[in-house]
């Protein structure tokens, strides 16, 4: 018995050793020369292999960086400006700093606001629904709620809220790689400029139906009334196809538009509560002041209140 075991061990190790030698020589023989800078650059990339740069994996991007003379169009959204400047240093090429971006979900059609009119029973992905029909609600533009965006996110920066059946982006985790933007068949997700304290003002709707139809399908749809356009002092808002869009660069986060929107389509996120009118007792004011649907307030908002109020 023991001899058998001995034989087994010996022969297996022999096979292993021979294979290792063959592999070693093969590796030597087929080694190709590669620019050592590619490795160097790759080391400085985040190794997320998310494809956010438009190349398959970080190595592909590193190669592109090394090979192209002008790298100002290449950008790693995950590593951001820090990574890019390091890369530029290694390669001795110039890069421009870019505004960091973050994904925002431009739909607020939770079941409470957007009634379901039929029920979908099929493969559970948004692309299949959108290929089939306009979706479970009367709004053919809104979120289908099956989480294709969640599925593609490599950074666990997006999840489905069970109650609203809408995706939620975790700002700190989002690298703006754009995978979710590509995955969403309804083009609901947009990469917008990241502001101080993660503050955001945007039209959370992509419905291009006429006001009446949009409103009937969803309480919080943009009806294209242009009230926001009128109050905006910075020309940041345009209405096209009955849908308002706020330019993230022009917008100065003044919040005027939020107040005038009759359907509460414009969201303000991570802002402190508005100034309290002195006549009102504090407790009551707080209840009233919270804007109708501002979401995602952070804990540190309390600090802001202390500082400012």
């Amino acid at each position: 018995m023991s001899t058998i075991i001995l034989f087994t061990i010996i022969s297996l190790s022999a096979i292993g050793a021979i294979a290792a030698i063959i592999l070693y020589f093969a590796a030597q023989k087929f080694k190709v020369f590669e620019d050592p800078r590619i490795d160097q650059v790759e080391e400085n990339l985040p190794a997320a292999n998310c494809g956010g740069c438009g190349y398959p994996g970080c190595r592909g991007f590193a190669e592109a960086l090394v090979k192209s003379d002008d790298i100002s169009d290449l950008y790693c959204p995950v590593g951001g400006n820090d990574t890019m400047s390091k890369v530029a240093e290694i390669l001795g090429k110039a890069v421009e700093a870019k505004d960091p971006l973050v994904a925002v979900i431009r739909c607020s059609g939770s079941p409470e606001h957007r009634k379901k009119v039929n029920s979908y029973d099929g493969a559970s992905t948004c692309v299949i629904v959108s290929g089939l029909y306009s979706g479970e609600t009367a709004c053919q533009y809104g979120c289908h709620g099956l989480g294709d965006c969640v599925e593609v996110c490599d950074f666990e920066a997006i999840y489905m809220d069970k109650e609203t059946e809408l995706p939620v982006v975790i700002d700190d985790a989002c690298t703006a790689c754009g995978a979710c933007v590509k995955a969403c068949p309804n083009d609901i997700i947009e990469l917008r400029k990241k502001n101080k304290k993660d503050r955001k003002i945007f039209v959370s709707c992509v419905n291009m139906d006429k006001g009446g139809i949009a409103k009937k399908a969803c309480d919080v749809a943009c009806i294209g009334c242009k009230a926001c356009v009128k109050v905006c002092a910075y020309d940041a808002i345009v209405v096209e196809n009955f849908l308002a869009y706020i330019d993230p660069v022009k917008c100065k986060l003044c919040r005027k538009c939020v107040e005038v929107c009759p359907t509460n389509s414009i969201l303000e996120i991570n802002f402190p509560p508005r100034k309290v009118k002195p006549a009102q007792p504090v407790g009551e004011a707080e209840a009233k002041e919270t804007p109708a649907r501002s979401t995602g307030e952070k804990e540190n908002d309390n600090n802001i209140i202390n500082q400012e109020g």
């Binding site: 029973d121 299949i128 479970e136």
Partner: peptide, 8 residues
């Protein structure tokens, strides 16, 4: 009740 929609 709500009608069902599914692919063929």
């Amino acid at each position: 009740s709500k009608i069902t929609i599914s692919p063929s």
